[in-house]
């Protein structure tokens, strides 16, 4: 190849150094991780329905989970979409105060979700070691709770960064991507609720 000085060039110096949305590399990485974790949820859902075929009654000779905490948590998840969307909207502006407020709001929802999840775990009306039904139910709720804790830690970390001047450039894009991940947590929560509180009543 010839020396650069002798040939035409493609000058990219005018391109932005941060991208929001789909062209951001972290956005794509986040999508891949959502596919990985979504596949895990899908396989647990499939295992749940597979195990259903191995029992004559469902739940096997026990009561379905008490649904009130689950429904309350689902409502809370639905409302949590508001701070998540707000964080995503204000992130490109770089307004640290607004970003901080949105992230702290989202973090508060995540804490409340986690507290209610604790109550949900006490009212599943089964234990993981009693039978396969209990095992798969606890695994589903446990996997989702793991995601909830991860997302809480990530949100609070970003909120911590928003108190510093480092909340700039690519960190702003991270705030927007964090909201995408929260949507994933909310959607999987709804699907899990349908299985845990819905199918145990009519399947």
């Amino acid at each position: 190849m010839k020396q650069a000085g002798e040939r035409p060039v493609l000058d990219v110096s005018g391109l932005p150094s941060v991208a929001f949305g789909r062209s951001n590399t972290s956005w794509l990485g986040n999508v891949f991780y959502m596919l990985i974790e979504g596949t895990m949820f899908a396989l647990l859902f499939a295992s749940y329905f597979y195990l259903r075929t191995r029992s004559s009654s469902w739940p096997p000779f026990q009561s379905p989970p008490y649904a009130v905490y689950g429904i309350a948590n689902a409502l809370l998840f639905a409302f949590s979409l508001i701070p998540a969307r707000l964080a995503q909207r204000v992130a490109p502006s770089g307004d640290r105060q607004k970003i901080r407020l949105a992230l702290l709001g989202l973090g508060a929802f995540a804490v409340a979700n986690l507290v209610l999840r604790g109550f949900e775990l006490t009212s599943l009306n089964c234990r993981w070691y009693e039978n396969a039904y209990g095992s798969i139910l606890w695994s589903l709720v446990g996997l989702h709770t793991g995601h909830l804790i991860t997302e809480l830690v990530e949100t609070m970390s970003l909120a911590g960064v928003s108190f510093t001047r480092s909340m700039e450039g690519t960190r702003l894009a991270d705030v927007a991507i964090n909201s995408d991940y929260w949507y994933f947590v909310v959607v999987t929560a709804f699907l899990m609720d349908v299985i845990v509180y819905g199918t145990t009543r009519f399947l």
């Binding site: 195990l51 191995r54 096997p60 009693e130 039978n131 396969a132 039904y133 095992s135 695994s139």
Partner: peptide, 11 residues
Amino acid sequence: TQFFNPAVGGD
């Protein structure tokens, strides 16, 4: 857990 224990609904 009892995922693979056929005695209690596993497979």
